[in-house]
Design a protein around this nucleic acid. Sequence first.
DNA 1: CCCCTGACTGTCG
DNA 2: CCGACAGCCAGGG
Length: 108
Amino acid sequence: MGSVGAEAALSDRDRRLLDVVRALGEGEVVSYGDIAADAGFPGRSRLVGRLLAVHSGTDLPWWRVVTSAGRLVPGHELEQSTLLRAEGVVVRAGRVRSAPVGRFSSSN
DNA sequence: CCCCTGACTGTCG
DNA sequence: CCGACAGCCAGGG
């Protein structure tokens, strides 16, 4: 334990937000607001965006997070769409098939 | 401490 | 569908 991992520097709030993102499974897509609300911080959607932008590259499945409109992350649409499609999520014109209200599957 | 920017969101036209 | 506005909070200069 004594390792000073990046998480060690995180505040309880940030850690909780990241925890919610990590809890996402394959084909499960939610919005920034959902993450924030689920972590106990309704309305703090911007925090999630900034947090993901900083921590992207770790164990964080950032591609499972989209905007409330189902819009993919600007600048990462191609990569994100590829990752989502690989999980069975239907992506169309930089957008997920419906509103990010939970899990997305080709059979749902 | 002030000001600007941002991987956000909902409303309005 | 898209742009403009307002509300929101945090970080960097």
